[in-house]
């Protein structure tokens, strides 16, 4: 019985610790600057200022920022999942020379943190041949810096998805391939019309992870896009701009933070099961 009570208080402690900062964010997003700067502790907004939200959204071109984030996250998710699934299928189902060393290479790739390759990747993007005014040797222009391609392409290369898809396809019965072959399906057709439609569980989990990661990404857009222009700014970068001004309008900043987190909140709440599955699949070793 004491265990139960202790457990309850423990749970309450964690819930409050996790929840209070978000409730404060919500509250501050509705407060006036006078209230925020008054030294007294008033947790509820008084008066309630809904106008902070439109004010925050007109501080910069937020329609554009939201579109940019959605476009970059959406494109990288779709492209990377398709490539991951295709590669995972080949590794799970087809025997070919050098399969094992290539697979070890993929596993090793999962261990290379993007922070390590940040600098050379930037140089490589800047010197990308025949893009952004560059010549064949990558000199003369800005390359893929400040382009959607520059933002999206590196996100597609992750190996984690390949590994996950391979594990998933290993569980499929081999008869599936044999039947497809009898019907005259090539490998690509088999993948496209048999394996891919059966991949919803794994692709769902991977999609949630990939979309969230790309939407939340800060570092790569920070180095890849021009700080002065608005065209490619993502929501995460736009949020940090509220800080660069002389006075920080905390109420607008919190309102913008609410808006930018909303997409992730919706994805998370509606696909919590996939999310948990995705996190676990990276770790569970039986």
């Amino acid at each position: 019985m004491t265990g139960r009570v202790a457990g309850f208080f423990l749970l309450m402690f964690f819930l409050l610790a996790a929840g209070i900062p978000f409730l404060i964010m919500l509250s501050v997003s509705l407060q006036s600057m006078e209230q925020i700067y008054s030294p007294s502790l008033a947790l509820l907004p008084n008066p309630v200022r809904f106008s902070n939200y439109p004010d925050a959204m007109s501080n910069g071109n937020w329609t554009r920022y939201l579109f940019n984030s959605a476009y970059v996250a959406g494109m990288s998710t779709v492209l990377s999942l398709f490539i991951n699934a295709m590669t995972g299928y080949a590794f799970a189902r087809i025997a070919f020379p050098l399969k094992r060393p290539l697979f070890v290479l993929i596993l090793a790739g999962m261990m290379i943190p993007p922070q390590v390759t940040l600098v050379p990747l930037f140089i490589q993007m800047k010197q990308f041949p025949l893009a952004g005014g560059n010549n064949l040797f990558g000199a003369g222009g800005t390359g893929l810096v400040d382009t959607y391609a520059g933002l999206i392409l590196p996100y597609i290369a992750g190996s984690f998805g390949v590994f996950m898809c391979r594990q998933f396809y290993l569980m499929f019965p081999k008869e599936l391939d044999e039947a497809a072959k009898m019907d005259g399906c090539g490998r690509f057709r088999t993948f496209l019309s048999i394996y891919l439609p059966l991949s919803a569980p794994i692709l769902g989990a991977l999609a949630v992870l990939k979309f969230t990661a790309a939407w939340n990404e800060y570092t790569w857009p920070l180095v890849m896009t021009n700080a002065g222009a608005d065209t490619l700014t993502t929501v995460q970068l736009a949020l940090t701009r509220f800080r660069n001004e002389g006075e920080i309008f905390w109420n607008q900043l919190m309102a913008a933070t609410m808006v930018s987190s909303l997409a992730i909140l919706v994805v998370f709440l509606s696909m919590q099961k996939y999310f948990v599955a995705g996190i676990l699949s990276g770790s569970v070793k039986e």
Binding site: F14, L15, A18, G19, P21, F22, I24, M25, T212, W215, N216, Y218, Q236, L239, T240, F242, L253, M254, T257, S260, S261, I264, L265, F268, Q272, F275, V276
Partner: peptide, 16 residues
């Protein structure tokens, strides 16, 4: 509730 801070972006968490 306990997982949401992990899901939220580091930028928004930093801002809060």
């Amino acid at each position: 509730v306990l997982m949401y801070p992990y899901v939220a972006s580091m930028v928004s968490v930093s801002m809060i």
